[in-house]
Simulated scan of single mutants.
Amino acid sequence: MNCWVFIPIKSPAYCKTRLAPVLDEAERQYLVAAMLERVYTAACAVAGPDRTFILGPSRHALGNKVRQFGDPGVGLNPAATSARDAALQGGVERLILLSADLPRVTTDDVAALINIPARTIAVAPDESGQGTNALSLPLPQASDFRFHYGLGSCAAHREEAARLALPLLTIVRPDLAFDIDEPAELAGWYNAGPNSSFTNQF
């Protein structure tokens, strides 16, 4: 299947500002880059480096060989729309949008987002069930999909599938659902043990 994976991420200075009470700027940037590298590596292992893109103004620490799709600079929803339109023009059959802040994501998680029945939209919620950690869109069937990242995005994305009269699959996988936005999530992940080679930096 011709599939593209886009990983949206802000510029380093604007990432994970809610962690400022517990991490200084250098620590936040290190955490963001490490999580991004894990997500990117998992996506590349499944989709391939030629079909995996950073969606945003910076590659962070990944280097110039990483494919980057520029963010128009007016928010995540317009950026996702631009990625969708580029995928349509490229004849892509499935578009994946995958959050950059998933410190435990695996290649099996990415494969689960790709191996979706034809004409079916898949959404992977965060642990609260409110946010959207990943979207999997069939193209061209979802060519008019409207992105609703923000408060209550998961419910809004389900409503989009209904509006387009496309089947919806909810993917619940622990490592795909776990993201780090708040200090409590960072503490819980760190205290759980050596989940990753970069936890000892904090």
Rank of each mutant, 00 (worst) to 15 (best):
P12W: 08
L135K: 13
N64S: 14
N195L: 13
V172N: 07
A142Q: 11
G56Y: 05
G56H: 04
Q89D: 13
P12F: 08
P174T: 00
E160K: 04
P125K: 10
H148I: 03
E159W: 06
L151Q: 09
P167T: 12
A124G: 11
A87R: 07
E93I: 03
P167V: 11
S128R: 14
T17K: 15
H60N: 02
A20I: 10
L151H: 10
R94L: 09
L113Q: 06
L76I: 15
V5Q: 01
A187G: 08
Y14A: 14
R51A: 13
L23A: 03
H60R: 02
L19S: 08
C15L: 10
S136G: 14
A161D: 00
A187C: 10
L88E: 05
V5D: 02
F147I: 02
G150V: 01
T106F: 04
R158V: 08
L113V: 05
Y40D: 01
Y149P: 04
D144Y: 10
A47S: 11
P174R: 01
I121P: 00
P103R: 10
C154W: 04
E127Q: 14
R28D: 03
A162V: 03
F147D: 02
A156I: 02
R163W: 04
A13Q: 14
V46H: 06
D101E: 12
I9E: 03
E25N: 09
A100K: 00
E182A: 13
F178S: 06
A47W: 01
Q141D: 12
G70D: 13
G75R: 12
I96M: 00
I9A: 13
A177M: 15
T106S: 15
L98G: 00
R59T: 09
D179G: 15
V92P: 00
G193Q: 12
L98F: 01
I96A: 00
P49R: 09
D85H: 13
P103K: 12
V22G: 13
G193K: 10
V66K: 08
I116G: 01
R18V: 00
P117W: 04
N200M: 02
S143Q: 15
S153Y: 05
S136Y: 11
Q29A: 10
Q68H: 04
H157W: 05
A61R: 12
A142M: 11
V172W: 01
A122V: 03
W4H: 13
E127A: 13
P174K: 01
L97Y: 03
R146Q: 14
E127N: 07
A80G: 04
K10M: 09
A111V: 06
L36T: 11
T17M: 14
Y149W: 15
L113A: 08
L176V: 11
S143F: 05
A165Y: 07
I180P: 06
G152D: 08
M35C: 14
I9F: 05
A45V: 04
N133T: 07
N115Y: 05
L23T: 01
L97D: 04
P117N: 05
F202I: 13
A61K: 12
R28K: 10
N133R: 15
R146K: 13
S82Y: 07
E182H: 14
A142H: 11
V92Y: 02
A155S: 09
C3W: 02
C15E: 09
I96F: 00
K16M: 12
E159S: 12
Q201Y: 12
E27Q: 15
A87C: 14
I9V: 15
A45K: 11
N191G: 09
E93A: 13
A86F: 11
R18H: 03
E159H: 09
L168A: 06
T81L: 14
V105L: 13
D179Y: 06
